[in-house]
């Protein structure tokens, strides 16, 4: 497998001189199998450039598969700008957690409701289908075995473990750690006191995550905050690199990739984060990389040329 990062930023896109090296676009990762098949994880603003590349390479309309961690704007905003969607004959399958009573199609269709975007989902030439995922229930998409894992984030989100070509990686974004705050389906102006049930839920969620990540080669993890930032905003639903390292160490993962960088983090700050955590990770036996737009990582055997 090979993964390519098209957007590594959290919350909102940040253009400007301070983000040219790590990139300013929001969450979107492409994975290719050795046989050249493609899976997209999250549809943030990075998806626009990915779509343009896929369209340039394609000789005929394609089927695209998109796994969504959740449907906050920074993870879906690229969908209306995914150029293959405007080619008739394209098929786009979207996989996501159903987070409320609404139908998934309404939530995704709502991104392009006419008040927000000039073309509605129904008017787009591609055909869409929607698949609900459930934590712990594996699905096969082409050569990829995908296992959704529940995460701790406002209104719910899921991580994905993806096995293919005899190797594995996981996408763990967005999530808070599993000790101070349990995210539910209401607004949190600040941390709430945890009940005994809440503490049990958090412990169970962390155990299930660590079981799910057991032995995974590479883990991409929401490390939005530096430790001092987390202390100020523990209820925002994001983690620090230290918290990610704890999880990766417990699950015996080889490599951690820092991801979902805070919009306020400049390239120079990210250089320091990258150097600091490379060293801290090495002490704990984990290779720590810091993702940037355009970064490509081989996972297990290298892929064949894209077909």
């Amino acid at each position: 497998m090979q993964i390519t990062f098209w957007g590594v930023r959290g919350s909102y896109p940040v253009p400007g001189a301070a983000t040219v090296r790590y990139g300013g676009q929001t969450s979107c990762v492409e994975v290719r199998s050795a046989s050249g098949e493609c899976l997209i994880v999250d549809a943030g603003t990075g998806m626009r450039a990915l779509g343009n590349k896929l369209l340039r390479e394609a000789t005929a309309p394609q089927n695209h598969h998109v796994l969504l961690s959740h449907v906050h704007w920074d993870h879906i905003q690229g969908l209306p700008f995914f150029s293959p969607a405007y080619i008739a004959g394209t098929k786009i399958s979207i996989y996501a957690l159903l987070t409320a009573a609404d139908e998934l199609q309404q939530v995704i269709g709502g991104i392009t409701r006419q008040e927000f975007f000039p073309m509605s989902l129904e008017a787009v030439p591609a055909t869409f289908d929607f698949h609900e995922v459930a934590p712990g229930v594996g699905i096969d998409i082409g050569p990829f075995q995908v296992m959704p894992i529940a995460l701790n984030h406002p209104f719910g989100s899921v991580g994905y473990r993806i096995d293919c070509d005899g190797s594995s990686w996981a996408y763990v974004s967005d999530t808070a750690p599993f000790d101070r705050v349990l995210h539910k389906q209401h607004f949190l102006p600040g941390p709430e006191e945890l009940s005994e049930d809440d503490k049990t839920s958090l412990g169970d969620m962390r155990d299930a995550l660590i079981r799910g990540l057991k032995g995974v080669d590479t883990v991409i993890y929401d490390t939005h905050f530096l430790p001092e930032e987390y202390e100020r905003f523990p209820h925002y639903g994001h983690s620090t690199p230290d918290q990610a390292l704890d999880v990766c160490e417990a699950a015996h993962c080889r490599r951690l990739v820092l991801y979902h960088h805070a919009p306020s983090h400049t390239d120079d700050q990210m250089d320091k984060v990258a150097a600091d955590y490379l060293e801290l990770g090495a002490k704990r036996g984990i290779e720590v990389l810091t993702s940037f737009e355009g970064m490509t990582l081989p996972i297990g055997p290298a892929p064949a040329e894209a077909s």
Partner: peptide, 23 residues
């Protein structure tokens, strides 16, 4: 908006719980 719903409902929709933690 000249299509769909009111200005207030549209902005509420932008901040709907699915799309934004602001709810």
């Amino acid at each position: 908006p000249s299509v769909g719903s009111t200005l207030e409902a549209t902005l509420q929709n932008q901040l709907a719980p699915h799309y934004s933690p602001l709810n």
